[in-house]
Design a protein around this nucleic acid. Sequence first.
RNA 1: GGGCGAAUAGCGCAGUUGGUUCAGAGCAUCUGCCUUACAAGCAGAGGGUCGGGGGUUCGAAUCCCUCUUCGCCCACCA
Length: 917
Amino acid sequence: MDTKYSPKEIEAKWYKYWLDNKLFHSEPDGREPFTVVIPPPNVTGVLHMGHVLNETIQDVLVRRARQEGKNACWVPGTDHASIATEAKVIKRLKEQGINKQDLTREEFLKHAWAWTDEHGGIILKQLRTLGCSCDWDRTAFTMDEERSKAVIDVFCDLYRKGLIYRGLRMVNWDPERQTALSDEEVIYKDEHSHLFYLKYYVVEQDSVQPTGIEGEVIRKDERGYYALVATTRPETIMGDVAVFINPKDPANRWLSGKHVVVPKVGRVVPIMEDRYVEIGFGTGCLKVTPAHDVNDYALGQKFGLKTIDIFTPDAHVNMEPVEDELRPNLMHYHGMDREVCRKAIVADLQAEGLVERVEDYENKVGYSERTNVPIEPRLSLQWFIRMKHFADIALPPVMNDDIVFYPQKYKNTYRNWLENIKDWCISRQLWWGHRIPAYYIKGVLEEVGAENYPDELIFVAPSAEEALLLAQKHDANLSAADLVQDEGALDTWFSSWLWPISLFNGIEEPQNKEIQYYYPTADLVTGPDIIFFWVARMIMAGYEYMGKMPFRHVYFTGIVRDKLGRKMSKSLGNSPDPLDLIDRFGADGVRMGILLSAPAGNDILYDDSLCEQGRNFCNKIWNCFRLVKGWDVNDTLVTPKENILAVKWFNAVLQRAADEVADQLAKYRLSDALMTIYKLYTDEFSSWYLEMIKPAYLQPIDRATLDHTLYFFDALLRLLHPFMPFITEELWQNIAERRQGESIMTASVSNISVSTAHGEVADISGLMALVDHIKDVVTAVRNIRAQKNIAQKQAVELLVLGEQTFSEDALCMLSKLALLSSVTPANDKPEGAATFIVGTSEYSVPLGQFIDKGEERRKLEAELQHQQGFLRSVMAKLSNERFVQNAKPEIVELERKKRADAEARIATIEASLKALA
RNA sequence: GGGCGAAUAGCGCAGUUGGUUCAGAGCAUCUGCCUUACAAGCAGAGGGUCGGGGGUUCGAAUCCCUCUUCGCCCACCA
């Protein structure tokens, strides 16, 4: 066996074994279910560090549940990710010289499916490399037949319930992809921009009169009186229909009732008044373009203003809606991109003296989450869900912890969103996705246009045939050819929100055995960035369709960042390829690396050194195994006394650690749990226990000690298995004879210690204290060796001064660990001895001529000072009457004991100093 | 603008109702060791006024107030 663990073949071997033996597969049975549904990654995505974190956590939870005897079922799958995938397909088609516009819907979808089949599911393969124990037989896709049926049926159902409606609204428009987006898909970014102050000349120049109100600001230049309007988007002036002032604003009072000319455009628009306009911002004059701004639209609605939409769907200037008589002056802007037009129009305005000034300005601009282009607010006909009802059913269960969030702080975020919920725009102008099951009568649509199409003539049904039946109730003469289906597709999240239900076909058959057994799921593990997109909406759908929560616990992971704290991203190139890491450190090493510093909710700063630590830990375990398996056993050998003590002690340590791990896991403190196991292995097991029982070189070990040690090893592997599945399986299989198909995956983790290890221990804390004392003495002796340059192999004598006595087994253990030639009680210590104190006892190692009296004295004096300082602080407390009166009696008693101990130690040190003199 | 959270060792963190030498473990650093399981290792060591200030208390990293700094979420100020 090599001294290094080499993961590659071992990982492949056991993953295959698990699959061959169907150990990941779950079927409903009598056991308690433990269900986890994977947050479906994009079907065309590849594994990144965020996935590694997320999936490793899920795997730990699932594997642990399996070991606890639960029927664990982790369902994998992928998301069709409508907008992201459609973008990728369009890009690839472009590379092949094909434009989406030239394709029919059917042709495009053919390409999209081809792409999905080709690249889809790569990420699921990669999850196997990481060791994920998903039930692959259940692999699903948000757009497969079963899931699609659920989506369409839910749409129809919500429509019937009046929770879905169609309407002309101002929506977030992505001009790149040319589709509407939900509010959640818009990311606001701070931007350096400019505030342009434009002159809108007053039409009624002759009637301008100062009002005499204090604070009045009348603007006039050689061309006459004008209103000054501040805007960040001068290109939208072509859609201006009014200028608003606040009725209470003294500065602009004189403009009341006037009309102004939109600069360059030439349109005469009224000055109007509304309290929405903030006095003191800019000049207090607001230009209003209802077609291109959400607030302007609201004002337009309130006052019945026209909307002049001067952009095409891809945000190029369109002069069509502009009045004929104004157009000739503006035609050179026609077809310009909005950004280009901004520059052009500013230049023109400046040339004509219509810009009074330009200021630097910081503002927020909304960007499309997917295409990263600025959102254009756009009036369009879309489908929405009324969210009030869903907010009402989804808020209470989280607030009262029926569904528990880890960490809890996200409850606030969740509440905040639900309490200010807005309707959800679910339609997208995309082809890749679930097509909206709404049908229109072709003739009527052509006659009145989409915007004026009456709601009563919309027929929503799962299929064209069923829609026709509905339509025929309205007009018996209609035939299939008279109906036309809505062109839009649904938001991806409209299918994801059903995931925990649709995976078990719970929408179609709510009473089926699977949904009844697996639902609600146990834990959801996901990033806080999709708390609104996904988590909240799953809770809504869960209560709406199952009447129950979709999951009991939500574990929000942090964001994986690089060492410098930057978010990992493709463009920065700071994201390592997980497969490459697995290649270098092994899957177990990578899992440990990512888990170690990933407490819930905290961002993790990833660095390769974390995986190195994981790999090193694998080696440690590997070498423990080499040692233990290398021992020959001799059945006739009597178990040494120190081994009996060691076994009893480690048995207790193991149980304590196992309890701690269980507690930490119950609190979802995975990295703490892993650290507990790590320390148990490296510190207690390797550094102490194995050294305690290790036979001399080439000597055999006794049967009882070996058996107990193998048992401990087995238990340690079981504890570690959820975190590092591969190496633990490998060693577990080799530590004892196993049946075919048997696996550590299902080896129990309850009752980890052996209660019969050399009989019951009555006083566990006494046992622990004894071994702790021995460890302290050993460490002190090692220190003396180091300081005095005494060789590791050179045995030394130890004198015990005072009352401390050791039982025989303790003496044996002590002698073995510290390599002592003798341990003898003594009243006085010889000339030239190094001394140290453990607890209240003093020890001494005679050194003969090696001793440096001066140094020894300095050490003792330093210790004396420390003890005296400590005693003073204790005395201060005890002499404080209010402390003695108010503090709890046990606390006071403790202080008294501290005083006694300190006094004893001081006496000992003083005696030693005297002896040295 | 509103809300939430954080600040503890060089680094990323733990510290559960205030009380055990409570100021912690891990990594990194330093020192000594190729000691027959492991140098990807072993044995040791150093390192922090718990962001600043005030208060409550016999006692504060922990509770309260305040200031500073950082992060996140939400929001229609052109």
